[in-house]
Simulated scan of single mutants.
Amino acid sequence: MEGGDDDDGVPQLSGDTLAALQEFYAEQQQRDALKSGIDKFSVGSVEEDWQLSQFWYDDKTAFSLAKEAIEASGENGRIACISAPSIYQKLKSLDAENMSMCLLEYDRRFSVYGEDFIFYDYNNPLNLPEKLKHHSFDIVIADPPYLSEECLRKTAETIKYLSKGKILLCTGAVMEDLAAAVLGLKICKFIPKHTRNLANEFRCYSNYELGLDSQLE
């Protein structure tokens, strides 16, 4: 490196460059693992990254929410999953015919899912590609990564832009009042569960009557 004065004359990478390189190799390893895996859409095929506040649903929950989305969206339905990769994975594994779905997600490891993957940063909630038309999804399922008012409010902007009407939100029980205020959602009877025990109680919220709830009556 120009101007360097390293002891052994070996170029040294900056901290940022090294971190970027490590991220690239991690993503490459993930792609290789998915390509060689039996089912790249299985929940857990991409490992949780706790630094990104990732906690996957258990298989039963992911299956239940995916089936709910399919039924709620109707024939030839369009489903958007925002920060909810395990639900997207289960939707794909169910191989629902004539369904259209996409995953809006910050973690670029999920780019292995091709055109279904949309890079998404909740800090820029309306920075979306042109192909995601206004009010073009029959149901939007969202699981904001952080239990904060800012995160939910900004994610709500994306939800309201994409949804034709039906919304299914999964987040902490502490967000109940805010979910009602910003999206008009009510708490559901169905309780989502994760593969790991979380400190915060999680609940589902919707603006329509869940089929899952009727099954619990």
Rank of each mutant, 00 (worst) to 15 (best):
residue 59 D to R: 12
residue 12 Q to L: 01
residue 79 I to C: 00
residue 23 E to Q: 15
residue 120 Y to L: 08
residue 56 W to E: 06
residue 86 S to M: 01
residue 99 M to P: 03
residue 16 D to K: 09
residue 59 D to I: 09
residue 27 E to H: 10
residue 113 Y to T: 06
residue 51 Q to L: 09
residue 50 W to F: 10
residue 25 Y to E: 09
residue 38 I to W: 06
residue 21 L to S: 14
residue 113 Y to C: 13
residue 31 R to Q: 12
residue 84 A to L: 11
residue 35 K to I: 12
residue 63 F to D: 12
residue 45 S to K: 07
residue 98 N to I: 07
residue 35 K to H: 15
residue 78 R to G: 04
residue 94 L to W: 03
residue 49 D to S: 11
residue 28 Q to A: 13
residue 91 L to D: 02
residue 115 E to N: 11
residue 14 S to L: 00
residue 24 F to G: 03
residue 55 F to C: 04
residue 42 S to A: 10
residue 45 S to V: 14
residue 46 V to S: 05
residue 113 Y to P: 07
residue 14 S to D: 01
residue 103 L to F: 12
residue 77 G to W: 03
residue 28 Q to K: 08
residue 113 Y to I: 09
residue 120 Y to F: 14
residue 120 Y to E: 10
residue 111 S to A: 13
residue 63 F to Q: 11
residue 38 I to P: 05
residue 43 V to I: 15
residue 98 N to V: 07
residue 15 G to I: 00
residue 70 I to L: 04
residue 88 Y to W: 09
residue 83 S to M: 07
residue 37 G to P: 03
residue 48 E to F: 05
residue 73 S to C: 15
residue 49 D to W: 09
residue 58 D to W: 14
residue 108 R to K: 12
residue 26 A to V: 04
residue 31 R to Y: 11
residue 102 C to H: 15
residue 78 R to K: 14
residue 21 L to D: 07
residue 81 C to R: 02
residue 12 Q to T: 02
residue 87 I to W: 00
residue 57 Y to N: 05
residue 58 D to P: 11
residue 56 W to R: 07
residue 58 D to K: 10
residue 106 Y to I: 07
residue 106 Y to E: 06
residue 88 Y to D: 04
residue 93 S to Q: 07
residue 111 S to H: 13
residue 111 S to T: 06
residue 82 I to E: 04
residue 42 S to R: 12
residue 21 L to F: 08
residue 63 F to H: 12
residue 33 A to V: 05
residue 105 E to H: 10
residue 79 I to V: 09
residue 105 E to W: 07
residue 94 L to N: 01
residue 92 K to L: 08
residue 61 T to P: 02
residue 84 A to G: 06
residue 95 D to R: 15
residue 52 L to M: 05
residue 65 L to K: 03
residue 32 D to S: 06
residue 95 D to P: 00
residue 15 G to W: 00
residue 60 K to Q: 12
residue 50 W to G: 10
residue 85 P to M: 00
residue 61 T to S: 05
residue 77 G to V: 02
residue 92 K to E: 15
residue 97 E to P: 11
residue 99 M to T: 13
residue 16 D to S: 05
residue 13 L to K: 01
residue 22 Q to W: 01
residue 40 K to Y: 02
residue 118 I to W: 10
residue 109 R to N: 04
residue 26 A to G: 02
residue 75 E to M: 03
residue 19 A to L: 11
residue 114 G to Q: 08
residue 13 L to Q: 01
residue 92 K to R: 14
residue 72 A to I: 07
residue 109 R to W: 03
residue 55 F to G: 01
residue 40 K to S: 05
residue 40 K to Q: 05
residue 48 E to K: 06
residue 57 Y to C: 10
residue 27 E to Q: 12
residue 44 G to I: 06
residue 72 A to K: 13
residue 40 K to N: 02
residue 63 F to R: 14
residue 81 C to W: 01
residue 12 Q to H: 03
residue 93 S to W: 00
residue 112 V to K: 01
residue 27 E to C: 13
residue 39 D to T: 09
residue 82 I to Q: 08
residue 15 G to M: 00
residue 71 E to L: 05
residue 57 Y to V: 08
residue 82 I to P: 09
residue 112 V to W: 00
residue 38 I to F: 11
